[in-house]
């Protein structure tokens, strides 16, 4: 990696190491996808490259759909890292666990998800640790698993992940927190389209959990 001055490790994410450093005089996040030693080397290289490029592409694209996401300062595909705007705020996960979230925030998260889906963007990993609450706005990060799709099935899969996280990590607030999200989603996507997504979501839930031995 090119030397950009002092970098301080601030997070070990799900798949990347997150450093706080500087870029052109301002604070910036360095998201570095290091090789994972347990993964086969050629598989590992392919995944890291694909996700780094994907993340930068989608992070830019969602902005035109009215979704707040970090600005990208620099992308190094070879060394699979991205330098991006540092968003000051707290993760939605931490706020929910501490019990300090207004209901409006969850409705807004639903709207944001709706805006992404209207722009045919599937986030792919919309956990509550990938949402940063910035004063009153929401910023979405971590687009490594994102992709473009117009399929209801993919939108339902996206929504199912949020539901899964809410029902496990935030079980004491469930199902209320998810209902709030759905209400915001409906505001953006309309009742009919939301209904289709919800129906597909139930179909997906029936598929996996009851897997039987054969």
């Amino acid at each position: 990696m090119i030397y950009h001055g002092g970098l301080r490790l601030i997070q070990r994410g799900a798949e990347a190491d997150i450093y706080l450093g500087r870029w052109c005089g301002q604070e910036a996040i360095y998201k570095v996808r290091k090789s994972l030693p347990y993964r086969n080397e050629s598989l590992d290289r392919a995944i890291r490259l694909q996700r780094t490029i994907r993340e930068a592409t989608v992070m830019n694209r969602v902005k035109s759909a009215g979704v707040r996401s970090p600005y990208i300062f620099y992308l190094d595909p070879k060394n699979t890292y991205i330098v991006m705007e540092y968003i000051r705020g707290r993760r939605l996960k931490d706020l929910l666990l501490a019990g300090g979230v207004r209901e409006e925030v969850l409705v807004e998260l639903g709207r944001v998800l709706g805006r992404m889906h209207s722009a045919n963007v599937i986030h792919g990993d919309l956990t509550t640790s990938n949402v940063i609450v910035e004063s009153n706005k929401l910023a979405i990060i971590d687009f490594g698993l994102s992709y473009f799709s117009t399929r209801i099935e993919d939108m339902a899969t996206d929504m199912r992940l949020v539901k899964e996280v809410m029902s496990s990590v935030h079980s004491s607030l469930f199902p209320r927190c998810f209902e709030l999200l759905v209400s915001g989603y409906e505001q953006v996507l309309g009742i009919e389209r939301s209904r289709q997504v919800k129906l597909q979501l139930s179909a997906i839930e029936r598929r996996g959990r009851y897997a039987k031995v054969e």
């Binding site: 899969t157 899964e164 996280v165 029902s167 496990s168 990590v169 079980s171 004491s172 997906i204 598929r207 996996g208 959990r209 897997a211 039987k212 031995v213």
Partner: peptide
């Protein structure tokens, strides 16, 4: 054979955090 799941205990049950979709 019958399960592929990630779980944690919270609010009196073992709750699913991740699983196979098929």
């Amino acid at each position: 054979g019958g399960h592929t799941m990630l779980l944690q205990f919270s609010s009196s049950r073992w709750r699913v955090i991740g699983e196979t979709l098929d």
